[in-house]
């Protein structure tokens, strides 16, 4: 009896693994996206496409005309959103700008944007240097701007910030020939460090080369849109 049992076990045991594999492998295959894609394809052969299908559409010509009218109306509404005056696009990832008007590109070039750095003051305060993203508006245009240096400009140089009205705070060379204020203390201005253009080196403002800055200053009016992304 014992030998008969052993013989039976030896005879059928090798079948167990193939049977398990036959069950398990297709299960795993069936879970793959490739199978699922194939399933959709096969099903679509039988049904001529997947999902619910409505029957014939009544007055299809009228619906086509109506759809065309809606598209035309939407397109004109979207065109109305385009600024009539010149505007500027600033790409902080590539440090490039595009100056545009309603129809054309006026000028493209390199710029410098925020260096994405956090400066920790000796007292522990954290000051982030980052160019904000979004839509801004030119609030003020200035020729030969004078920069009122904030505290961080001194702390970054290892100096103690002077009093609010101290003469050291006023700097008439750093911002270049023009500055366009876009709010919250951020500006589009020139730079002494032309060799750093195209690199993220600023404290949040946007720096442009001299010729580009002049073009931007002449084309962007007060109220012009500035898109930073």
């Amino acid at each position: 009896m014992e030998t008969e049992e052993k013989g039976w076990f030896r005879k059928y045991f090798p079948w167990i693994i193939p049977i398990l594999l036959i069950g398990w492998i297709p299960t795993m295959i069936l879970y793959t996206p490739a199978y699922q894609n194939a399933t959709y394809t096969v099903k679509s052969w039988f049904n001529g496409g997947l999902g619910e299908k409505t029957g014939g559409i009544r007055n299809i010509d009228r619906q086509i005309q109506s759809s065309k009218a809606t598209i035309a109306s939407l397109q004109s509404k979207l065109e109305d959103l385009m600024p009539e005056k010149a505007y500027i696009l600033i790409n902080t990832a590539t440090n490039r700008f595009v100056l545009r008007n309603a129809k054309d590109t006026i000028r493209t070039g390199i710029c410098s944007t925020g260096k994405d750095e956090i400066l920790i003051y000796p007292n522990g305060t954290r000051k982030p240097f980052k160019t904000p993203k979004g839509m801004f508006v030119v609030q003020l245009k200035r020729k030969d701007p004078v920069w009122t240096k904030p505290d961080w400009a001194f702390i970054e140089e290892g100096l103690k910030p002077p009093s609010a009205r101290a003469a050291e705070r006023y700097d008439d060379s750093t911002l270049g020939s023009y500055a366009l204020n876009i709010g919250d203390g951020y500006m589009i201005h020139g730079t002494l460090y032309q060799r750093f253009l195209g690199l993220p080196v600023t404290h949040g403002c946007v720096r442009l080369g001299d010729a580009d800055l002049e073009a931007v200053f002449n084309n962007l009016e007060k109220g012009a849109k500035v898109f930073i992304y």
Binding site: N37, L50, E52, Y87
Partner: peptide, 28 residues
């Protein structure tokens, strides 16, 4: 896009779409 104004167009070099999208009827 922002406020209806195109900021940047990025060219798509290659697209792969699942059949679970492609094989469905336009209504769906």
């Amino acid at each position: 896009e922002m406020k209806g104004i195109p900021l940047q167009d990025c060219e798509i070099k290659n697209i792969i779409v699942s059949n679970s999208i492609l094989k469905y009827h336009d209504e769906n």
